[in-house]
Amino acid sequence: MPDKVSLGKVSATPAAKTFLAEIIADHGPVLFHQSGGCCDGSSPMCYSQGDFIVGENDVWLGDIGETPVYISASQYQAWKHTDLIIDVVPGRGGMFSLDNEKRFLTRSTICATPSANGRD
């Protein structure tokens, strides 16, 4: 994974943390990549760490426990004034995402500054 500085702009609800622990127990270490697609725009995709290659243009938002969370640079530009909260709701996850039966969903809150460390 790229050597980048976490922006500390992501958290998770207790329900999402519990569901994430279940997925890790079944699949080992995972990562999230915030979808930028037309159909899954608010869905953080959950992948086994060896199954998704983080690109040079991906932005590391932070970690949920031991699980890193990334977003594409172009989508980060649109969402840089928000803090993302990973939640879980009923339904199926994205096409290649590991979540099943329940799915992860990104909620957001507007923050006062673009990031905790002053980066845009």
Rank of each mutant, 00 (worst) to 15 (best):
M1C: 12
P2D: 15
P2M: 15
D3W: 13
V5W: 11
V5Q: 10
S6Q: 12
S6W: 03
L7G: 10
L7I: 11
K9E: 08
V10D: 04
V10M: 11
S11I: 08
A12R: 03
T13G: 07
T13M: 07
K17C: 09
F19N: 04
L20E: 01
A21C: 06
A21G: 06
E22M: 14
I23A: 14
I24N: 04
A25F: 03
D26C: 14
H27T: 11
G28C: 08
P29W: 03
L31N: 01
H33K: 10
Q34T: 05
G36Y: 02
G36E: 03
G37A: 10
C38P: 13
C39L: 10
G41D: 10
S42C: 09
S42Q: 04
S43Y: 01
P44H: 00
P44V: 00
P44D: 00
M45T: 02
M45K: 01
M45W: 01
Q49L: 02
G50Y: 08
I53N: 07
I53M: 06
N57I: 05
D58Y: 04
V59Y: 00
G62C: 09
D63L: 05
I64F: 01
E66M: 06
E66C: 07
P68A: 08
P68G: 09
V69P: 01
V69S: 02
V69H: 02
V69A: 05
Y70H: 06
Y70E: 04
Y70V: 11
S72F: 00
S72H: 01
Q75E: 06
Y76M: 05
Q77M: 14
Q77D: 14
A78I: 12
W79E: 04
K80D: 02
H81P: 02
D83A: 13
D83Y: 05
I85P: 11
I85Y: 10
I86K: 01
I86C: 02
I86R: 02
V88K: 05
V89N: 11
P90C: 12
G91S: 13
G91P: 10
G91I: 14
R92G: 15
S97D: 09
R103Y: 12
F104V: 05
L105I: 15
L105E: 12
L105T: 12
T106F: 09
R107W: 13
S108V: 12
S108Q: 07
I110A: 05
I110T: 06
C111P: 09
C111M: 10
A112V: 10
A112P: 00
T113S: 14
T113K: 10
T113W: 13
T113R: 11
N117Y: 13
N117V: 14
